[in-house]
């Protein structure tokens, strides 16, 4: 089955990014496919490569990048929401791409299930 995932909150502030990530891992472990992870609202902050968590904490941004690298997961950041919050190509972490809201709608159309994580 094809899954679309929406992440609406930034990393560390809210558990949504952690829940979304763990859900994605479970989706892949179950042998399903992730069509796209779409980052919206403050969720776009998941894509900032300037993030530097303390050594003993999880690196949420790097974890997403690794998910993209290992499994080819499409990580899409909403351009309008990103520009509002200072997320641009120059500070985008590996594996993420910036695109339009149409990518969210397309995920809703193409995926068999769309699951939202937010506040």
């Amino acid at each position: 089955m094809k899954f679309g995932i929406v992440v609406n909150e930034g990393p560390y502030q809210h558990q949504a990014s952690d829940s979304a990530y763990l859900f994605c891992k479970a989706v892949l472990e179950k042998g399903h496919e992730i069509f796209r992870v779409f980052f919206y609202h403050d969720g776009v902050n998941n894509a900032s490569r300037l993030t530097e968590p303390p050594q003993d904490d999880r690196n949420i941004v790097a974890r997403w990048s690794k998910l993209a690298e290992d499994h080819g997961v499409d990580l899409v950041v909403c351009v309008a929401a990103a520009l509002r919050r200072g997320i641009k190509e120059e500070n985008l972490a590996p594996g993420f791409r910036i695109s339009g809201l149409g990518q969210l709608v397309e995920a809703g159309i193409q995926a068999d299930r769309l699951v939202t994580f937010g506040d």
Binding site: H41, A80, A81, L101, G102, V105, G108, I109
Partner: peptide
């Protein structure tokens, strides 16, 4: 900002004939 950004998604969705 949720209400405003929700409206932005709605307007885009309109273009997809759903």
């Amino acid at each position: 900002i949720y209400a405003l950004e929700s409206l932005e998604v709605v307007l885009i969705t309109a273009a997809f004939d759903q």
